[in-house]
């Protein structure tokens, strides 16, 4: 069957189809976070004052910095894809490495931020947190789950990019064939978009 089946795959290697599949996956991911946003809005509606107070305790500077980092990484991955489309392989690889570095920097910042909070005794189910009002418990519960889930996506993105980097280095991905990189880029932008909403909803509650 090999020949016949190979023919099938050649035919199935459909650029638009591959992107459509990725977009559908992104749709699904958006609603995964959407579920969390439903909970967030319900609880924020019920506990506006507690959410405000708890939000004051987050490091706004770190949050803003992380926003800039992630936006910049989106720029670098977008240009990396444009570079490979133009046949500038080296530039594409450098930009991809920059993206990964920015992703890791984001995670390091996040880790630092979590670390400081945990040091202050604020983490799910901690005695310090349980002593506070219910709205604040909820705020930090949501904060840890949502930023944690987002961080996990960043981590997955960095791993995917390292695979892409190898594929570019090996020449599997090139000017003629770049869909996997483009799809990985789409995923990364999705992660960026989620953060674009997480940032004001956690750090900037007035």
């Amino acid at each position: 069957m090999d020949e016949a089946k190979e023919a099938v795959f050649e035919e199935a290697r459909d650029y638009t189809g591959a992107k459509l599949g990725m977009w559908l996956f992104i749709l699904s991911e958006l609603l995964l976070f959407g579920g969390m946003f439903i909970l967030y809005s319900g609880y924020r509606y019920k506990n506006p004052a507690d959410f405000h107070h708890a939000s004051r305790e987050l490091e706004v500077v770190l949050g803003t910095l992380n926003t800039i980092i992630l936006l910049t990484s989106s720029l670098s991955v977008a240009t990396s894809i444009a570079a490979i489309q133009k046949g500038q392989r080296k530039l594409s690889m450098v930009l991809l490495m920059a993206t990964m570095a920015l992703g890791l920097l984001f995670l390091a910042n996040k880790g630092f931020e979590w670390g400081t909070k945990i040091e202050h005794g604020i983490y799910p189910n901690s005695p310090t947190l349980l002593a506070r009002s219910k709205g604040e418990i909820l705020f930090f519960g949501l904060y840890y789950v949502m930023t944690g889930l987002h961080g996990l996506h960043v981590l997955v993105g960095v791993c995917v990019f390292s695979v892409m980097l190898i594929l570019i280095a090996k020449g599997t991905l090139n000017q003629m064939r770049f869909v996997p990189l483009e799809n990985a880029g789409l995923y990364w932008h999705l992660v960026d978009i989620i953060w674009i909403f997480l940032y004001p909803l956690f750090y900037l509650i007035t």
């Binding site: 290697r13 459909d14 650029y15 936006l71 989106s74 240009t79 444009a82 489309q85 064939r177 869909v179």
Partner: peptide, 25 residues
Amino acid sequence: MENREVKIHPVKYRTYVFVWMGLVI
């Protein structure tokens, strides 16, 4: 099929930088 991938016109780097600046602002 490969041809279809080639027909893509890559976006100018400049456009991306402008968008990024917009995002930061």
